[in-house]
Amino acid sequence: MTLSAREQTYLLSLAKHSIEHGLEKGVQKPPGSYELPENLQHFENEQACFVTLNKEAQLRGCIGTLEATRPLIEDVSHNAFHAAFSDPRFNPIDIRELDRLNIGISLLSSPQEMEYCPTMEDLLDQLKPEEDGLIISDGIRRATFLPSVWEQLPDKRQFVQFLMRKAGIAVWSEDIHCERYRSHSFDLDWYRIESYAG
């Protein structure tokens, strides 16, 4: 899904509002409490997304879903709240940090199984840097890197090795399952995002 600038602005303002609501009320805004403008009704369709928070170019929270399970409008609100307050890697967002935050949203395509990757070399041959998001799993261990992670890890082998580490997979084996996906991503600094008007 490719969005217009207006649609991107709307979703970013929705994410910002979800965080503001969390700071003010201490809870997530209930699903179904948003009113969509008529020309944005397609946001009621199911769509998987990630919301990423960065502060001064450093990751501050990232939560999302790999498969569509709820309307996009609800997924953005849910993931923004949990990226701000429930990412286990970070303390909850504090109001004093807001002006230094950047909010990013990534809309994901459906994951597609990689054709053949019994070895890491087979996977590396298929990977497309800057385009592919990657999911690897081995039993209950599973992790993903969004395509945006290529900006920090442009080398394919390093990209895979760091993802294995994230998943808790020590060594490559034939049991590793690989999937790829694409994303449409956009972001703005907190103070540049319009106030929510839904």
Rank of each mutant, 00 (worst) to 15 (best):
A68H: 07
E44F: 07
E174T: 10
F50P: 00
G133H: 10
C62A: 11
K166W: 08
D75L: 01
P71Q: 06
L59G: 03
H82P: 01
R142D: 07
H184T: 04
A167H: 05
R70A: 10
R100N: 15
Q152A: 12
H177W: 12
L53E: 05
I135H: 11
G139K: 10
R60W: 11
P88I: 08
R182Y: 12
G104S: 14
E113C: 02
G61W: 08
R141C: 03
S109T: 14
G61A: 05
F186N: 02
D87W: 07
S110K: 13
F85I: 08
S148A: 15
R100V: 02
E174L: 03
E130L: 08
P71T: 04
D175M: 03
M114A: 13
E67G: 00
Q161H: 12
Q112W: 05
N54R: 12
R70C: 03
S173R: 10
F81H: 15
D122S: 04
R100I: 03
P147G: 06
N54A: 09
D125K: 12
S109F: 00
E46D: 13
C117G: 02
N45L: 01
E130T: 09
W172P: 00
P92R: 13
P154G: 10
D87N: 10
V76C: 04
T69D: 14
L124T: 04
S106L: 09
E174N: 12
L134G: 01
E56Y: 00
Y116I: 03
T65M: 12
M164S: 04
C178G: 05
F85T: 07
I176Y: 09
E97D: 15
W172Q: 06
D132A: 02
E121V: 03
L59I: 11
E97A: 00
A143K: 06
V76Y: 09
P88D: 14
D155A: 04
C117E: 13
Q58H: 13
T69M: 08
E44Y: 11
C117F: 14
F50K: 02
S183A: 15
V51M: 01
T119S: 15
S148Q: 15
H177Q: 13
G64S: 08
I176L: 15
L134F: 02
L134D: 08
I93W: 13
S183P: 00
F50D: 01
G64I: 05
L124G: 02
H82M: 10
V149Q: 13
M114E: 15
P147D: 11
